[in-house]
Amino acid sequence: MSVEGTASAASAGPRERGTPPPGAAQGASRLRRLAERRRVRDLGLRVAGVLTVLSALELCSRVGLLSQDWFPPVTETYAELGRLAAGHPLWTEIGRTLNGWLVGIVIATLLAVPIGVLLGSNNTAYRFSRVVIEFCRPIPSVALIPLAVLVYGVGLEMKVFLIVFVTFWPILLQVIYGVRDVDPLVQDTARSYGLPPSARFLRVTLPSAAPYIATGLRIASSIALVLAVTAELVVGAPGLGQSIVVAQSNALLPRMYALIIVTGLVGWALNSVFQAIERRLLRWHPSQRREVAQ
């Protein structure tokens, strides 16, 4: 190499630390465009799938494959859904159902999280309570409806009692699994640095168990909504379930199906909210990074 070339290379010097390599900005922009196209394509496929199913149901009802006495055309159901959405009573019933759902979820969380942390942190306490947990957890919550009605009547307290009972167990088990799944090496490292138990809990145990807790809350949310509507259907407590029963009793089938669709939309919205919160709060977790990358 000539002296001039060597001097020129030396004068150019190494690239400053932190400076992106050539083409990095274009590569990142291309990845963003690809991710956006993938999201648009996925959204298009989902919408197309829903429209295909609705069109098939409409066609089957119109040509007589499904009796209109029991399965009204989809267009009539969604027309009734639009009329309900424009009225006040629908939103009142949704609020009544969600009121019991929210109170039950909050109480179950406040009970299950500290108990789960205690049982997950102490092997003796976990073994002592394991039989009780495995006995109570499979009890069908619907079987407790007569007891709940006898004690609390058919109001909000009855729904809250059933929701707390049924959602307590998935949250409790997820907290226990999360606390027990903490890497012992990380615990020993924190202990060797002299961190007190409270600091180890906040810096090691809680972050490690957070994904488990989020999963338990998301599962409990869906179960709580199912149970709230079930209690309203069986007992006649105010809410969406009671409205469905009233529509069925009066042979208002488009309204009945419209209310069932509303129930499904509420469940989908709640699950989406929990997923968005989980992604937001746990964006540092590898599982969320993999989900974003996909």
Score class of each variant (00 low, 15 high):
Q294S: 14
R37H: 14
V3L: 13
N123L: 11
F135Q: 05
G87M: 03
P89C: 03
I219E: 06
L225V: 08
Q26R: 09
I163C: 02
L156H: 04
A148Y: 00
N99A: 14
A258P: 02
G49V: 14
V166K: 00
D181I: 06
T77S: 12
V131H: 06
P184N: 09
D69F: 03
R280A: 13
V63L: 08
L206A: 07
V142G: 02
F201D: 09
G153Y: 05
D181T: 09
L202Q: 08
Q248R: 13
T52E: 09
L282G: 06
T189Y: 07
G267W: 01
S121Y: 09
S208Q: 03
G239I: 13
I145F: 13
R38T: 13
A220S: 10
Q187S: 14
V117I: 07
A258H: 03
S287I: 15
S61W: 06
S67W: 04
Y78N: 08
G239T: 13
I107G: 01
A56I: 10
L98W: 10
R17G: 07
L150Q: 04
V63R: 14
R191V: 07
I171L: 00
V160A: 05
W70T: 07
A209G: 14
S29H: 10
A143D: 02
S8T: 14
T205F: 10
R83T: 14
Y212H: 14
A112Y: 01
G104F: 00
V182M: 07
G236S: 14
G104R: 01
Q242P: 15
E4Y: 08
S222Y: 11
I261W: 12
I171H: 00
I244C: 10
L81T: 03
W91H: 10
A220P: 02
I213T: 02
Q288C: 15
V3M: 15
Y257A: 13
P146D: 03
C60D: 11
I219G: 02
R200W: 06
A210E: 06
S141R: 06
V204Q: 12
L281G: 11
L34S: 13
G27K: 12
T52R: 13
G23V: 01
A224L: 04
L84M: 05
A25H: 14
R127E: 05
G236C: 07
M256E: 01
G194Y: 04
A125Q: 08
W284D: 00
L227A: 03
L265Y: 10
L150G: 13
R279M: 03
A12V: 14
A56K: 07
L173R: 09
R283W: 07
L51A: 06
N250M: 11
Q187H: 04
P138R: 02
R62E: 03
L119K: 00
A210Y: 10
I176L: 08
A143G: 01
R180S: 05
T263S: 15
K159V: 03
S222V: 15
L81F: 06
R41F: 09
P184R: 01
